[in-house]
Amino acid sequence: MDKTNPEKAVKELTMLLMYLTRFNGRGHLGSDLDMSWKGYDFDIISELDEEDYIRQGSRRSKSVVITDEGMKLSRELLAKYNILDWK
């Protein structure tokens, strides 16, 4: 198995932690949103936002929305790191 470089691992594990600690929030249009708190490295948060895995909206907000692509990536990362998903 190939080793993952530290920078990539931090990014992947941040995405995984946001996925595993997500909560359901209601959007201003009444839609369900998978959200997570922003308590992670701001540079990583910005990279994930630029890659459309999350949306942080205002830089001052304390939470992010996990996009459909972010949910898909997170599930792939669960398999990569051999972590069970919530039931």
Results as ranks from 00 to 15, higher is better:
Met1Asp: 08
Lys3Tyr: 12
Lys3Asp: 15
Thr4His: 03
Thr4Pro: 00
Asn5Cys: 06
Pro6Arg: 09
Pro6His: 03
Pro6Asn: 10
Glu7Ile: 11
Glu7Thr: 13
Glu7Asp: 08
Lys8Ile: 13
Lys8Leu: 13
Lys8Trp: 03
Val10Trp: 03
Lys11Thr: 14
Lys11Gln: 10
Glu12Lys: 05
Leu13Ile: 11
Leu13Ala: 05
Thr14Ser: 10
Leu16Cys: 05
Tyr19Gln: 01
Leu20Asp: 07
Thr21Cys: 03
Thr21Ile: 00
Phe23Val: 06
Asn24Lys: 14
Gly25Thr: 00
Arg26Pro: 00
Arg26Ile: 14
Arg26Met: 14
His28Gln: 12
Leu29His: 11
Gly30Trp: 04
Ser31Glu: 15
Asp32Ala: 13
Asp32Trp: 05
Asp34Ile: 08
Ser36Trp: 04
Ser36Gln: 00
Ser36Thr: 12
Lys38His: 03
Lys38Asp: 10
Tyr40Ile: 10
Tyr40Asp: 05
Asp41Tyr: 09
Asp41Pro: 06
Phe42Asn: 14
Asp43Gly: 11
Asp43Glu: 14
Ile44Cys: 12
Ile44Pro: 04
Ile45Gln: 03
Ser46Gln: 15
Glu47Ile: 11
Leu48Tyr: 05
Leu48Ala: 09
Asp52Gln: 14
Asp52Ser: 13
Tyr53Gln: 04
Tyr53Gly: 04
Tyr53Thr: 04
Ile54His: 00
Arg55Asn: 09
Arg55Leu: 06
Arg55Val: 08
Gln56Gly: 10
Gly57Cys: 06
Ser58Asn: 10
Lys62Gly: 08
Val64Asn: 01
Val64Trp: 08
Val64Cys: 07
Val64Arg: 02
Ile66Val: 14
Thr67Leu: 03
Thr67Ile: 05
Asp68Arg: 09
Gly70Gln: 00
Gly70Trp: 01
Gly70Arg: 01
Met71Ala: 06
Leu73His: 01
Glu76Cys: 04
Leu77Cys: 06
Lys80Tyr: 01
Lys80His: 02
Tyr81Ile: 02
Ile83Arg: 09
Asp85Val: 02
Lys87Tyr: 04
